[in-house]
Amino acid sequence: MLSHTPVRTPAPWTNVYGLARTLLALGTLLTLAFSDSATLFRPVAFQGNHPTCHGVEAGGAFCLVPGDELDAMRWACVAILLIVASGWRPRLTALPHAYISFSVFTGIAIGDGGDQMTAVLTLLLILPALGDRRRWHWNAADPNITHPRWLLLAGVSALVVVRLQMSFVYFQASVSKMPHAEWADGTSMWYWGNSLAFGAPGWLHTLVGPVLANPVGVAVLTWSPLFIEISLAAALLVPQRVRYALLAAGTGFHLCIAVMMGLWSFALAMWAGVLLLCLPLGGELRMRERPTGHTSSVQRARTNATTLDSENPASRAAATS
């Protein structure tokens, strides 16, 4: 007779999803805090003045105030994003966070893929956040608090959709490049690296320039992103131990883009997405307690490192998801 062992649904309220929320908030915060209103809200060819306030865009925060109060609204959004990034009361800050992300993506004149990704992810993260009863999203969930089953399933389902969304984003990013001759023949990064708008800054060009001038070097720089992106697209199909390597590759990949092209808000948004894609559902990032007694240096290094809480039964159940 076959026995049935129930599978425990992992709780979505972890500091992994909390860290993702913080990264998303910081990305939007940097855009608003370090770009003045004259840069963010200006005319764009064939579109007119921003914010355009047409259709659904009219519901954005920057369409609710007159033009001479856009600066005040910008700093009000920065203040709210600071609270979101701190991790305080996720279920109270989830809706304002998603609303600000939508307002920035639809309202500013210089929006990029990071703003769009942030708007999508913060919308999806509303479901787990609304069921999050923690004071801070860094805290471990209280095991004595019982959540309604539908809140648990809604939160986990939203995080699964986030993972599928990120997988599709990386698949599309990789496949859409392949038909272009410059990506196929390995020369695309020569053009990007020497671009006046997106090329390496002067201090970095002395290091990157010789690599871009070398046929092998520029081919490696061109094809590496394609390999990383298609690998991340397949992250949900590989064992968890491989996903950890993909997490490191994806983090480093977007760090290189940020340093070389200055797209820091984009990097923060994608780091948040990569975390949710590659780490197990229900997993916790935690600092182990300082060891006592006689322990080896290797043991001390391991216990002081920030690791995934693989000892959590829910984490183990989710590791194969």
Rank of each mutant, 00 (worst) to 15 (best):
V7W: 12
T9E: 14
V16L: 09
L19I: 09
L32P: 10
S35P: 00
P43E: 11
A45L: 08
A45T: 03
G48L: 10
T52N: 04
V56H: 01
L64N: 05
D68H: 13
R74I: 03
I80P: 01
I83N: 10
I83V: 15
W88V: 15
R89W: 15
R89N: 13
Y99C: 02
D112E: 14
G113E: 07
G114I: 13
T118C: 12
L121C: 03
T122Q: 11
L123W: 06
L124D: 10
I126Q: 08
P128T: 12
N139T: 11
T146I: 15
L152D: 13
A154F: 03
V156Y: 11
S157D: 08
L159F: 03
L164W: 15
L164F: 13
D185M: 00
M189R: 11
N194E: 13
A197C: 01
F198G: 02
P201W: 04
V216C: 01
A219V: 03
L221K: 09
W223T: 04
S231K: 02
L232Y: 09
A233P: 10
A245Q: 05
L247F: 13
F253N: 14
V259Y: 01
A267M: 14
A267H: 09
A269H: 12
P280C: 00
G283L: 00
R288T: 07
T292F: 05
T292A: 09
G293H: 07
S297H: 05
R300D: 08
A305R: 15
E311I: 02
P313E: 06
A314M: 12
